[in-house]
Computed example of a mutant assay.
Amino acid sequence: MKRIALFASGSGSNAEKIAEYFADRPEVEISLILTNNPKAGVIERARRLHIPVLVFDRTTFYGSERIVRLLRKQEIDLVVLAGFMWLIPEALVRAFPNRMLNIHPALLPKYGGKGMYGHFVHEAVVSAGEAESGITIHFVNERYDEGAVVFQTACPLDPTDTPEDVARKVQVLEHRYFPEIVEKVLNQLK
């Protein structure tokens, strides 16, 4: 059995789509959802899906190896960042080399880096007058949004699109492709 741990900071719609995607696949288990936000919507989604949740703080995440030890104890094969906002500490990156995926709501390398998430990305895309946006799924390294790209896909934008319109179009791509790419990467693991 392959085991996945999901990290999320917000509503958790991508985490839920991934969990639903693997629900009928006994060879894959969503073992744990981890969040840095005690008020995150992902917590309620995880409860509904009967997936254990761990809420942690900044000191635990950056000042200890507790998360790494927990993931190893749970024999996690793949770590998936599904809307997780904190930079991943080096110890965690080293513990899961090429076994940690992130999704970014833009076509990297454009609109990536510290502070570029959610509506900030979509506002920047609209302000720049881009003709398209999309998603990038990439491996995680020690810097925001700079890991090797695994998958990208784009959607056309209309000149009248608002940041909210862009967000809706991008989320359709996230929900459609992220679970499939997680499965593809999982199947390539030895």
Rank of each mutant, 00 (worst) to 15 (best):
L49I: 07
S64F: 06
Y111V: 09
I67P: 00
V121Q: 03
E142H: 11
A124C: 12
L87Q: 04
T59V: 12
E44S: 14
F151M: 07
K73I: 04
Q152L: 01
H175Y: 13
D158Q: 11
V140G: 00
T59E: 15
A95Q: 06
G83M: 00
V53E: 04
G63Y: 07
H138R: 03
S127Q: 15
V150D: 14
V150I: 15
P109A: 07
Y144W: 12
S64Q: 09
Y177C: 14
E44N: 13
G83A: 00
F139P: 04
Y62G: 00
L54Y: 08
A40K: 02
D165M: 11
E146Y: 02
V150P: 14
R66E: 14
A167R: 06
L54M: 10
A128P: 07
E90F: 02
Q74I: 04
I76F: 09
E75W: 08
H50N: 14
I43G: 07
H104R: 09
V53S: 05
R48L: 14
R168N: 12
I88W: 05
I51C: 05
R72W: 13
V55M: 06
A46N: 12
F139E: 08
F151T: 05
D57V: 06
D161M: 06
V53M: 06
L54D: 08
P89R: 02
E90Y: 05
E174P: 00
G41D: 04
G115Y: 10
P89E: 02
R58M: 00
A124P: 09
T162M: 12
A40Y: 01
L81Q: 03
R47T: 07
E174D: 05
A131P: 11
V80T: 03
F56S: 08
D145E: 10
A124K: 10
R143G: 04
L54V: 13
V125P: 03
A154H: 04
H175D: 13
F151Y: 14
V170C: 04
G134S: 11
L157P: 00
A167L: 06
E142Q: 13
V80C: 06
P163M: 07
E164M: 05
E164R: 10
G113R: 05
G41Q: 03
Y144I: 05
P97V: 11
R94K: 09
K169L: 06
G147A: 03
V55Y: 03
A124Y: 08
I76L: 09
I88L: 10
W86D: 13
Y144Q: 08
M100I: 07
V79N: 00
